[in-house]
Simulated scan of single mutants.
Amino acid sequence: MSGVAAILLAAGRGTRFGEEFKLLAQVGGKALVRHVAEAAVHSSINPVIVVTGYSAEAVRAELQELPVQIVHNPFFADGLSTSLKAGFSALPLEARAALMLLGDMPLVSASLIDALVAGWHESGEPAALVPTLNGRRGNPVVISRDLQAAIESLSGDVGAGPFLRGRPDVVEWPTADNAVVQDIDTKEEFGKLRL
Rank of each mutant, 00 (worst) to 15 (best):
A31D: 02
G28F: 06
D146N: 13
F75R: 15
V50H: 01
A61Q: 13
I45T: 12
A150R: 14
V108P: 09
A25E: 09
V108F: 10
P126F: 06
E189R: 08
A115S: 15
A5S: 15
A11F: 10
S123R: 11
W120K: 08
V142Q: 00
I151Y: 01
D185H: 15
F75A: 14
L23V: 08
D177V: 07
D177M: 02
E172K: 11
R16H: 10
A149T: 13
G166A: 06
A58N: 01
E20P: 11
L154C: 01
L66K: 03
T82N: 07
E57M: 04
A110Q: 07
W120E: 09
L84S: 05
V50T: 04
Y54I: 00
P92Y: 10
G124L: 02
V36A: 01
L80H: 15
P140Y: 01
L80G: 04
H121C: 00
A6H: 02
A97D: 04
V33K: 03
E172L: 15
D114L: 04
A160E: 13
A25D: 05
G53S: 08
K192Q: 15
V158W: 03
A5Y: 09
D114Y: 08
R96P: 00
A31L: 00
G53P: 07
R34A: 13
K192W: 05
H121D: 10
E57K: 11
A149S: 15
A127C: 09
K30I: 00
T186G: 04
S44M: 07
S81R: 06
N134F: 01
I7M: 10
V68E: 10
L193Q: 07
K30H: 12
V4G: 06
L195R: 08
Y54H: 14
G18Y: 12
S2L: 04
D183N: 06
S123I: 01
Y54C: 14
G87H: 12
D185P: 00
L32E: 04
V181R: 05
A37P: 08
A115R: 14
R136I: 10
G119T: 03
N178E: 15
N178F: 12
A128H: 03
I49A: 10
A97L: 09
D177N: 13
L112E: 03
G138R: 04
P74A: 07
A128C: 08
V171C: 11
I49N: 10
Q182K: 13
E122W: 03
E125I: 00
A58G: 01
L32Q: 02
R136Y: 05
M105Q: 12
F190V: 12
G28K: 01
E125P: 00
S43G: 06
E38W: 02
L154S: 05
S2Y: 02
V142N: 00
Q182D: 11
L195G: 13
K187G: 00
L102D: 09
V180W: 01
Q26T: 14
R13A: 15
L164N: 06
V48M: 09
K22H: 05
D157Q: 07
A98D: 03
S109I: 06
H72C: 12
P174W: 11
L112F: 06
L116R: 09
E65C: 02
V33N: 05
G135F: 04
G28Y: 04
L133I: 09
H121M: 01
L133V: 07
S123L: 01
W120Q: 09
M105R: 06
P140L: 02
